[in-house]
């Protein structure tokens, strides 16, 4: 499985994500700079890491979403290449329009950094097939702008079409309908605020994130 991690100025989870991808796939991902103008051939997965791209200036993910390489990522996503955005990566994906809605300041205004319980809502996707629908997993969050908001019609559609991947099993940031992660309509783009790459080996204090990467490996290997 050939993977790539897009690095923006201010990304800070790119190495953790690369380590997790290598651990599961056995291959080092390509580390791509946001200013690049083309993607390597034959990528099976493009991952957008967490962090504070461009200092969260203007809006979290707003400037990164307009990076030259993101044009290629948007085109690849349109052709069906799986794209995973974690935390700031999720914010970038909503800013590109690949995913609906927006991630706003946490309702409590605090930066929330802790393990949270998540319900796996949809297991019928390449990203979540390593889990069982309805299963509760523990994955850490670390964000200030994770409050997912969209209009009621969009939220209804996300729920009816099975595009809600993960829901918080506890109150975390005020997200509409407790949404922690969503899929694109075609299911090949996943954005999520929690950090699965931070729980992939025992030394991390948890391994609940590992199934996400292993699930991808079974379909994309």
């Amino acid at each position: 499985m050939k993977t790539a991690v897009v690095v923006f100025p201010g990304s800070n989870c790119d190495r953790d994500l690369a380590v997790a991808l290598e651990l599961v796939t056995g291959r080092k991902p390509a580390m791509l700079w946001h200013d690049d103008t083309s993607l390597p051939e034959g990528l099976d997965l493009i991952a957008l890491p967490g962090g504070f791209s461009h200092g969260d200036y203007l809006r979290s993910g707003a400037i990164a979403a307009r990076a030259p390489l993101m044009r290629e990522v948007i085109a690849a996503a349109g052709k069906g290449t799986p794209v995973l955005g974690i935390c700031n990566g999720f914010q970038v994906l909503t800013e590109t329009g690949l995913l609906p809605g927006a991630l706003m300041r946490n309702a409590g205004l605090d930066f929330v950094c802790r393990d949270v319980a998540l319900e796996v809502v949809t297991a019928d996707t390449p990203f979540t097939r390593g889990y069982k629908a309805g299963e509760t997993v523990t994955i850490p969050v670390a964000h200030h702008d994770g409050n997912f908001q969209a209009d009621a019609d969009t939220l209804d559609r996300l729920e009816q079409q099975g595009q809600v991947a993960f829901r918080y099993a506890e109150e975390v940031n005020g997200s509409a309908r407790g949404i922690a992660g969503i899929l694109s309509e075609k299911g090949n783009v996943l954005g999520m605020m929690p950090h699965p790459e931070r729980v992939v080996e025992k030394a991390h204090g948890g391994t609940d994130g590992r199934a996400l990467f292993e699930g991808l490996l079974t379909v994309l290997a």
């Binding site: 203007l58 707003a62 307009r66 909503t94 800013e95 809605g101």
Partner: peptide
């Protein structure tokens, strides 16, 4: 429309 505002919100 392209950058300064996010017209979703």
């Amino acid at each position: 429309r392209k950058l300064l505002a996010n017209t979703v919100i």
